[in-house]
Design a protein around this nucleic acid. Structure first.
Lengths: 139, 139
DNA sequence: CCCGGCCGTGCAGCGCATGAATGATTCGGC
DNA sequence: GCCGAATCATTCATGCGCTGCACGGCCGGG
């Protein structure tokens, strides 16, 4: 199996599971972090838009947002221009929560780095960046 | 989110889902391919061992092996030395099936390569190799 | 020979995610 | 200005992958 995509899938799924377990103490899942991450750099217009960016069904965004709202990490604000839409806003608490989640990911990075020469680390990072930028649901 | 692990997880999960959908025509899932892949380069001693290598529960290996056996891709052979164990053997048909699955993955690689300079491609490949080699369930 | 432990297997349950149905809201045609 | 079609958020029922547990067959030491 010399294919990149297959190995990328294997490692990615494993990494996702690992990250999920480490995230348990924060009572979050990777998908929640992804949502917060998107909100941080581009304030979302609607949940539909988020569903597209995340690549999941709109009904799932509802559940994710519910959980984050209960936690006080985000606010649901009815768009005054179009009262069907809910604009999700990141709160201070949400920003701190995202920082904690990022911290956890940084710890994983260190463990990953232990098995990877510094040169490979940088190359991997830029490669992932470019793939993510070209990905259908970019973030 | 500058962390490598998080982006690796995102892309990996997406790639896995994409690969799964492309694999539908072969009536296989990525986990099946992973199993075949392991069998190809190290003939497995027991299903327990495979469960460890795949990082899944032993009862799942049963289902995966069932499906592959019905397809004639593998054979279950009772280990004569220890009749509790089942030695899984890759058949000719299984080898061809794995080749088809690899072909599908290669097509995905081309699509991936379209968004990635050749230099990055090679760097990504070696990085994934090293991470996989250092991974708890190495294959 | 028997008993504790391991292997494979069947089964029930859990969690994530989807798709269809509902209700509220907006927009376009006339 | 009104009415039907389209859109958004939400809920619910469903499917599916995976796990944990219990059972039966099989091994090795006492």
């Amino acid at each position: 199996m010399g294919t990149v995509s297959f190995r990328l899938g294997l490692l990615g799924v494993a990494q996702d599971a690992l990250y999920a377990s480490r995230l348990a103490s924060l009572e979050l899942k990777p998908k929640h972090v992804a949502l917060l991450c998107i909100l941080r750099l581009r304030a979302a217009g609607s949940q539909m838009e988020l569903a597209g960016l995340l690549g999941v069904a709109p009904s799932l965004v509802v559940l994710l947002a519910d959980h984050l709202e209960e936690r006080g990490a985000i606010q649901r604000v009815r768009d005054p221009a179009d009262r069907r839409r809910q604009s999700l806003r990141l709160t201070e608490k949400g920003l701190r929560l995202l920082a904690s989640a990022t911290e956890v990911a940084a710890e994983l990075d260190e463990e990953l780095a232990a098995a990877l020469p510094a040169a490979d680390r940088a190359a991997l990072s830029t490669a992932l960046d470019r793939l993510l930028a070209a990905s259908p649901h970019r973030s």
